[in-house]
């Protein structure tokens, strides 16, 4: 971390950064143990350059001819492999503040973003991180060095979740401003206008990006287990509701199911990779599950 970053980071933020970084490493290492280097990150046929082999690199990319000649191991770097660009979009709106367990939705989303950043930077892909609510709140430049992880984490930990959400508008803005194709990972609860969100995701796809949508929801939001008299107060609205939660549970779950189905079907229709994640699911398990699914999908495409 740079001295300037340290100046803006509170001790609590520092602790979160530390947890995120460690968590990200563990998750990625766990995800990578026993697995091939994921082709998920693309492979171009354009040879770019050699680089010296480092422990853990994929042996498929070893230039055996060079080894035969020089008795040293070199990896072939392809243009695409070296220029993988990933944009991580983390929803930092007020609705992401909700959480019934040790991590609220934002902490969980930020952990996913940090974990992915760690993974990408480790294989020298370029990563930028953007936090948003109604608009873009924070962003990091696109970098590929491993030291860039601290900047990513700092951006994620910069400010607590607040303000309303307008995911659709932010996605449109990102789609129109990203100069080159790459991977766009949107991590949000998507508790906003679903059609607007789908429009934004569709636009990203239309611009040639590979789009991933991590839909983060708390267990309470998915199960609605409340009992007894409750007063619900909106995190992003002024709405107030006194009720017996049991009486509204059935209707709530129906509305939620409709919302999830619309989102899931819309993503499937537009080719957006969608995954619903509970905040109670361990991060490494969630990420490993998704990565495995991508691997299987990738082999199927080949």
């Amino acid at each position: 971390m740079t001295p300037a970053s340290k100046r803006f980071l509170h001790p609590e933020a520092m602790a979160r950064i530390g947890r995120l970084e460690i968590r990200a490493r563990r998750i990625v290492e766990g995800a990578m143990s026993g697995r091939h280097r994921s082709p998920y990150f693309g492979q171009s046929v354009e040879f770019l350059q050699h680089r010296q082999y480092a422990r853990g690199d994929d042996l498929r990319h070893v230039d055996w001819k060079a080894w035969a000649k020089q008795d040293r191991l070199y990896l072939k770097q392809f243009e695409e492999e070296a220029n993988m660009r990933c944009t991580l979009l983390a929803d930092a709106s007020a609705s992401m503040r909700y959480g019934s367990g040790p991590l609220n939705k934002y902490d969980y989303a930020a952990s996913i973003a940090a974990s992915l950043a760690y993974l990408l930077l480790k294989q020298h892909d370029a990563v930028r991180c953007i936090t948003f609510d109604e608009g873009i709140r924070g962003r990091t430049p696109l970098r590929s060095s491993e030291a860039h992880l601290a900047a990513v984490v700092q951006t994620l930990a910069a400010q607590p979740p607040r303000e309303k959400t307008d995911v659709g508008r932010v996605l449109v803005e990102i789609a129109e401003t990203l100069p080159r194709r790459g991977l766009v990972v949107a991590i949000s609860d998507f508790l906003t206008d679903v059609e607007s969100t789908l429009r934004g995701l569709r636009l990203l796809k239309q611009h040639g990006h590979d789009v991933l949508a991590f839909h983060v929801l708390d267990d309470d939001e998915l199960d609605f287990p409340f009992d007894g008299p409750v007063r619900f107060e909106g995190l992003e609205s002024l709405a107030r509701l006194n009720c017996n939660p049991r009486a509204l549970r059935e209707g709530y779950l129906e509305a939620l199911q409709r919302f999830l189905a619309t989102l899931r079907h819309g993503c499937a229709r537009d080719g957006v990779d969608y995954m619903l994640v509970r905040t109670s699911m361990p991060l490494d398990a969630a990420l490993a599950h998704y990565l495995s699914r991508r691997l299987a999908a990738g082999r199927h495409r080949k």
Binding site: M96, P229, S237
Partner: peptide, 28 residues
Amino acid sequence: INLRRRKRIEWAAMDFLMESRKRRQKSI
């Protein structure tokens, strides 16, 4: 008394709750 002793919860998915209440208000 129970009205005054309601548990307060800051909730993100208010739209779904309001939709549920709107549909079942009279019956409830």
